[in-house]
Write a protein that binds this DNA or RNA. Sequence first.
RNA 1: GUCGGGGUAGCUCAGCGGUAGAGCAAACGGCUCAUAAUCGUUAGGUCGCGGGUUCAAAUCCCGCCUCCGACACCA
Length: 597
Amino acid sequence: MPEHILVAVAWPYANGPRHIGHVAGFGVPSDIFARYHRLKGNYVLMVSGTDEHGTPITIAAEKEGVTPRQVADRYSQVIGDDLYNLGLSYDTFTRTTTLNHYHVTQDIFKTLYEKGYITRQETLGAFSATTGRTLPDRYIEGTCPLCGYHEARGDQCDNCGHQLDPIDLVNPRSKIDGQPPVFRETEHFFLDLPAFADRLSKWIAKQDHWRPNVRSFSLNFIKELKPRAITRDLEWGVPIPLPEYEQRDDKRIYVWFDAVIGYLSASIEWANNRGTPDAWRDWWQNRQARHFYFMGKDNIVFHTVIWPAQLMGVFSDGHYAGSAIGAFAEIPLQLPHNVVSSEFLTMEGKKFSSSRGVVIYVNDFLSRYDPDPLRYFLTIAGPENQDTDFTWAEFVRRNNDELVATWGNLVNRTLTNVYKNFGVVPTPGELTPADSALIATIDAGFTTCGELLEGARFKAALTETMRLAALVNSYLSDQEPWKVLKQDRERGATIWYVALRCVASLRILFTPFLPFSCQRLHTYLGYDGYLAGPLKFTEHNEANGMSHRVLTGDYTTWIGRWAIPDLPVGQQLREPQPLFKKLDERVVAEELARMEA
RNA sequence: GUCGGGGUAGCUCAGCGGUAGAGCAAACGGCUCAUAAUCGUUAGGUCGCGGGUUCAAAUCCCGCCUCCGACACCA
């Protein structure tokens, strides 16, 4: 029985282009997982989009003298292009500025408010003296009242480590314009997280398949749950859906509250866009469906605590206030099955920092290198369990000594030999025990690598697949078909057939990791159609006259199957080309120089 | 400050209670079909330091050193 698998991917923030550390954390792992499950024949729904609200975007807009919407438009475009070029196979990659997302967010807010899970409270807020807008604690600096450090931030002093309140700072000033902030009372809405504490801790305690750090970090976080502010004094965001705020333009829903709702709203949008408005329920209101969330470690509690609380609250007593979900409101929404968080990637030993030039943007990278080598590196050497370092030297080495030398070369030597000597899949004679053993070992990869992928152990899965490729090189070295062929054509044909047959299996085993090159291999082997089809953009108009672009693909056309493949004898091969390019050692120096500049 | 995660072969990392592992780098040898690619063999570590638990500890516990994160309005 095929399963319903929701692949929910963290929403990249649209205040600039994304760097390779971002896609290492959420992008590549989630795509490997989704592609694997599609090849398995499961019903996969992979959703995300650009996160476009919040203070950083308004600040970026102010600096450039444009509107927040223009900033979001520009970077949503750039980020969408990046993900497309990396081959991330979203069913729907949309935006948080769609009418649909506003509706769903407001429905959920209203429902939680009516059920009493959202409360109001007056708090003391800091405002910019020049613009009158909220100044987040991060954007205020001053002298630390405890240690006298001059550049303490409003939330914390980096020198002595104490937590601070902006009002405690001596000589506070805005980091944006240097003016002292104004403090005044303001009303905010709070999500009553303590109301969910019991349910949350019981639920999390049961999730023993989560990575230990995710689980213990979340349980720990729950011990001190406080109501959390979910509105901000800002004019850029989802409006508060209450009558008294309809005419006001100074308070909006906090970006984090609406960003996680995106998983649901994007699923609803997906269903609407394909003309089956209820189809999202097969994932969200189906107790058998399993939901997997992918993100960086800084996002854990939003996915293990806050978003689950929102989901619990909406359906807590069998009724629902909004119209977006409509009928079937008595069926609860599925909670996360697993929350797969990655650690961070560093760049040449340093933290990524656009302002200090320690950065390599995805679009910049892909303008000079192919997507598969990047996907390879980010999987085999990525921050799956701990922080890892990207260096150009290591990238070149991994590309040349591993990807090209082991897998690329195996494909190339096999295909060129077979193409040159036979032109078609050769007819094998009787298989020796060594022949059969090799095929059996490679084919066992569908089980071993499959289990590793199932458990989100991507690095181990790719390492294992590479090991299998190396076994075929070893076999060829052992059998020396280029010699044998001169004396015994039938035996030579058999050896090449065995190698080709193993390559045909490896073509599938590598597809989740290296979709572009595997598709090319697929055609060289004489197969037609898409192993795992191409992505595309579609344009969607909404009732308010706005239109937005969605990254999607027609994944039902995939003919690839996670199973031992059929390789028909006599199948006509196509002229092969090398799958990967060897990189010149000089690119290391070139790229480092580029970073300096 | 509180909480959490690291410190394992020259390098990058895996292992996380039962005689120290992989890839690369190094040395030697084989092959020469293939993007001078590949295959084999060898060498290389008192698993940060000090204690403890255990028949047995990189693996569990305590302390210390060291690096790095998170710590609610940074998405």
